[in-house]
């Protein structure tokens, strides 16, 4: 029982990342009809927003180390500590959550620039060409990051206070063996929050209503005199922000390197297809579902029965779902059915 509970939790935080990326992918696909292979790169860019912010916050000055008296020793002291003292130290400690503030406008700008600069010329082209051009774009973004930050993963720790593990078991009366890192809990809550925010935005605002109407029948909305294209551009920006935030918050779990986007992209595409192309709810639930399945498959008991299942479970599920339910779990009728 304990083990099962822990595996569900384990799956949920990974599933949270899948769900956030898949949500953005589906938004873009549902509105613009574009298959965006560069979405994983946006996730990676978000993570590197956090890295950049960390570099900025910890920009240091060499100061003479007074504690060593035998010889002249210098230590690096961040400017923030020099200027603000203890507050500066705390700020540096909280660098990952704070970088969200920077990531939102940056990712929005990147998203808008991408859509206006490249993606919009591909609305009418075939899906194969969309895949190819965004794939190329993803390589370009990845290589730019690599040339700036190098190929090695860059550790970006979570704040000190949430670095430990929570004793979840005690909370549910399951015994002390169920411990779980705080940050992963935060990630889970965060992804839930972002998903909720996106859904609320689409459901309860006029803007969201127009976007949903546009997803259902773009031509009709256009004929009503609404500039659908501009709204869809903004939706692309929002999708970029969602992917970016997923990336920012994921950095303490997985130190970012330039290749992380590709890994997640392939998986989230599978997630989108399993959930059903164009279905937001499908993308989110499939994300969590596949995350949980993956963590169950990596249990030793399961691996003893079917060796290697943890490596391929997601793809296996995708194949089975695609063959038995062609539209995915919650796919709408008439969307990408051919």
């Amino acid at each position: 029982m304990d083990a099962i509970f822990l595996q569900v939790l384990n799956g949920l935080d990974k599933g949270g990342a899948y769900a956030l990326i898949a949500l953005g992918l589906t938004l873009v696909f549902g509105t613009l009809g574009v298959v965006n292979f560069a979405h994983g790169a946006l996730f990676m860019l978000g993570a590197f927003c956090a890295v950049t912010f960390q570099f900025m916050m910890t920009a240091s000055k060499q100061i003479k180390d007074e504690s060593i008296t035998f010889f002249d020793a210098y230590k690096e002291v961040p400017y923030l500590e020099i200027w603000f003292g203890h507050v500066g130290t705390v700020l540096i400690d909280w660098v990952v959550p704070l970088s969200i503030i920077m990531a939102i406008p940056v990712m929005l700008l990147i998203g808008l620039a991408m859509e206006r600069g490249l993606i919009r010329y591909f609305y009418k082209r075939s899906h194969a060409e969309q895949i190819l051009v965004t794939f190329g774009l993803a390589i370009v973004l990845q290589e730019i990051i690599k040339s700036f930050f190098g190929a090695n993963p860059i550790p970006t720790p979570a704040p000190e206070i949430v670095a430990g593990s929570a004793n979840i078991g005690a909370l549910f009366g399951l015994g002390d063996s169920v411990v779980y890192p705080y940050w992963r809990l935060i990630y889970l809550a965060f992804s839930g929050l972002v998903i909720f925010a996106v859904f609320a935005f689409l459901q309860f605002t006029t803007f969201g209503m127009v976007v949903r109407a546009g997803m259902a029948d773009r031509e009709m909305v256009g004929l009503l005199g609404i500039n659908v294209e501009r709204r869809f551009t903004i939706v692309f920006g929002i999708a970029a922000v969602v992917a970016g935030l997923a990336g920012v918050m994921y950095t303490p779990i997985l130190p970012p390197d330039y290749n992380m986007g590709m890994e997640f992209l392939v998986l989230s595409f599978v997630v989108v297809v399993v959930g059903g192309m164009g279905s937001l709810g499908g993308a989110v639930s499939a994300g969590f579902l596949l995350g949980i399945l993956q963590s169950f498959a990596s249990m030793n008991e399961v691996k003893a029965i079917i060796p290697g299942i943890d490596q391929i479970i997601i793809y296996l599920v995708a194949v089975i779902i695609l063959l038995t339910r062609p539209r995915g779990l919650m796919g709408r009728k008439g969307v990408m059915e051919d």
Binding site: Q311, L322, L323
Partner: peptide, 30 residues
Amino acid sequence: YVSLRRTGIYFSILTLAFAQMCYKMAYSVL
């Protein structure tokens, strides 16, 4: 035989899924 039951992007994803399975298995169980 399996992948060609679907077309378009679904076909791409199916072939991708099979290839990734082969790749992951080559690294782990096989």
